[in-house]
Design a binder for these strands. Structure first.
Length: 324
RNA sequence: ACAACUAUUGUCU
């Protein structure tokens, strides 16, 4: 209970006072640490538990695998995998299998994720979803699309599958495929909520079709920071600073304060077009008026902008110096 | 019996 409420100190204290600690109490504590992003503490608990000669169960393993994925510790993930194969009959368990797929995908080893996937005797929507998301996140949109197609011989895609596949279409600029998936979403009785809407905007924006992104944006009844941010980013990518700024200011008119990510997109737009003065202006104004504290990405953008501009100047000089 | 896990939407690198 304490672990779930995010009070880990109390969870730990209660745990320490328990006269008999069993797998359930250890797993509850490990889950608490994992959920709070304290991956290393979760792993430490996992080792301590084993020192007590307590055998981890399916749940303990899936949580630890999840931790391996989030801290991208492929080495430990493989060790746990071997341990599971060697000591328990869990390798055919779908929950463990899915956790393994996700772990390998998050650790960028899609080959190993694939091996686990192929070995799974029965695959559910989460098994497919973990693969598709893994491909989408590693710029392997074509594989994601292939898996998406094959999956439909067996299962109906759910909302999460659609979100992943839209992402995949965006990363490879597959506009036609994206449109077809948009239609499929409309055909399915899935509610076109803010998250699906945002994913559609993002897909169209990444495919460079701001008209369609705009269409989705306008059709939405509710919009959040991500909806606006995706529009800003879309125009920014194309170097259309003016349009990006329309949405950047639009969101502020709607009472949504741009965050660091939105602001980075604006600076990117300036950098793509080489607008040094505008970049500086937004950098200064946002710092002073909106209260955005520049972070590393912002400085990176500014460095990009300035070096890009310097190159252009040099290039211009070169061009004028050239005899013809 | 008690813990119940795992895939998902915006920026730069």
């Amino acid at each position: 209970m304490y672990a779930k409420c995010g009070s880990l100190t109390e969870a730990q204290m209660t745990f320490d006072r328990l006269p008999d600690k069993n797998v359930v109490s250890w797993t509850a504590l490990i889950t608490g640490y994992a959920k709070q992003g304290e991956g290393h503490l979760a792993i430490e608990c996992f080792y301590k538990m084993q020192q007590q000669n307590l055998k981890a169960n399916e749940l303990t393993f899936s949580i630890i695998l999840n931790v391996c994925g989030s801290i991208e510790d492929l080495y430990l993930g493989r060790k746990i995998h071997e341990h599971i194969v060697g000591n328990n009959g869990f390798e055919c368990n779908i929950g463990i299998g899915n956790a393994l797929i996700d772990m390998y995908a998050k650790c960028s080893s899609l080959e190993e994720a694939c091996i686990v996937f192929n070995k799974l005797p029965s695959k559910d929507v989460i098994s497919w979803g973990s693969m598709i998301a893994g491909f989408a996140q590693h710029d392997e949109g074509l594989y994601a699309l292939q898996f998406f197609e094959s999956m439909q011989c067996w299962l109906k895609p759910n909302k999460i599958i659609f979100l992943s596949i839209l992402k995949a279409c965006g990363t490879i600029g597959a506009l036609d495929q994206g449109r077809r998936i948009h239609e499929k979403i409309l055909e399915s009785k899935l509610r076109l909520d803010i998250i699906v809407g945002n994913a559609l905007i993002d897909m169209y924006a990444n495919c460079g079709s701001m008209n369609e992104a705009c269409g989705v944006f306008n059709s939405m009844s509710d919009r959040d920071m991500i909806s606006w941010g995706a529009m800003v980013a879309g125009y920014a990518q194309l170097g259309l600073l003016d349009s990006a700024v329309v949405y950047y200011e639009g969101m502020q008119c709607c009472g949504i304060k741009p965050d660091n990510l939105t602001f980075t997109a604006i600076l990117t737009a300036c950098s793509h077009v080489g607008l040094v003065d505008e970049g500086w202006w937004y950098f200064t104004v946002s710092k002073n008026c909106i209260g955005i504290i520049p972070n590393e990405s912002h400085y990176n953008c500014m460095i990009d902008l300035l070096s890009h501009a310097a190159c252009l100047k040099e290039a211009e000089e070169q061009a004028t110096l050239q005899p013809n």
